[in-house]
């Protein structure tokens, strides 16, 4: 009995492991909620683009000596605004606007980096993340982002659902569709930026999309989808971090691998169940 307790308690004797569990768990909650919208609206690539664009902001912040999160957040929000404006004003295809903006911002980052090559080590950490180097300040940032996201969703959840479901109907009825779209992209940007330190720009997208996609295999109501996505994200986090601790694997990648395994298992389970139980036709029903 005590060995089981020891097994689960052992990582927590290290404060960096405790911070890793707390930080990534908070990210899993935040990413699960925001990720439900991202997955449903096919914004996965946008999340990725915002993450890359924020890299430019990170470099700019480093060079200017201001807090990194601020630079990243500014670039991410500007990218979100740019996407909203370009899409509506120029009729440019969304993927083209996206590619222009995020490669442009990323290139600025690379240019800035070239000016100060001695920062290269830190920036690599930000690209792939370093779960074990989460500082208390990072956790405060994540908490702040979660609070802001909570407030925004409390006020505008139904509006965001309306514009996601029927943007033209919403606009005709007088909802500020462009503003709400920017708000949604800003929540994505915020989630990405505060997750940078922990899981890096590359893996944060997985934490937004994969748990939500797994949840969408089984539930057909947005509120439940968010709940299940958060639970999937949390369990992937905890399983991943324990596995990483005992197997000495890279923690961020381990968490994402567990999340991917959950999705694969979900697909298989759906296929097994669909023979017997009546399951809702999900987004992935075409592939089953």
């Amino acid at each position: 009995m005590s060995t089981i307790v020891e097994f689960f308690a052992e990582p927590f004797q290290f404060s960096f492991m405790t911070r890793a569990f707390v930080g990534v768990s908070l990210i899993a909650v935040l990413a699960g909620v925001v990720g439900a919208f991202v997955m449903l609206k096919g914004l996965a690539f946008i999340g990725d683009a915002v993450a890359h664009a924020s890299f430019g902001g990170l470099v700019a912040a480093m060079l200017l000596g201001v807090p990194l999160h601020l630079g990243a957040l500014l670039f991410a929000l500007l990218t979100a605004a740019g996407l909203t404006v370009l899409g509506r004003k120029t009729g440019l295809r969304a993927d083209a606007s996206l590619a222009i903006l995020f490669t442009g911002a990323f290139a600025l980052g690379v240019l800035g980096l070239a000016a100060r090559p001695n920062f290269a080590g830190d920036l690599t950490a930000l690209l792939v993340g370093s779960v074990l180097a989460i500082r208390p300040a990072d956790i405060y940032w994540i908490l702040a982002a979660a609070a802001i996201t909570g407030i925004v969703l409390a006020a505008a959840f139904r509006h965001l659902v309306y514009i996601s479901f029927d943007p033209q109907g919403a606009e005709a009825a007088g909802l500020p569709v462009a503003g709400l779209q920017w708000l949604l992209l800003s929540l994505v940007a915020l989630t990405v930026v505060v997750s940078l330190q922990a899981v890096g720009v590359v893996l944060v997208v997985a934490l937004m999309i994969t748990p939500a996609a797994t949840a969408s295999l089984f539930v057909r109501r947005l509120e439940r989808l968010m709940t299940v996505a958060v639970l999937c994200g949390l369990s992937a986090t905890w399983i991943g971090l324990y596995a990483s601790y005992y197997l000495s694997t890279p923690p961020g990648a381990t968490v994402v691998t567990v999340a991917t395994a959950q999705f694969t298992a979900g697909l298989a389970m759906r296929r097994l169940l669909s023979g017997r139980a009546k399951l809702p036709p999900g987004r992935f029903s075409g592939t089953l």
């Binding site: 449903l40 659902v161 996601s164 479901f165 029927d166 033209q168 109907g169 947005l222 989808l225």
Partner: peptide, 8 residues
């Protein structure tokens, strides 16, 4: 024009 698969 409407996303009928949206879970609502």
């Amino acid at each position: 024009e409407i996303d009928w698969q949206f879970p609502i």
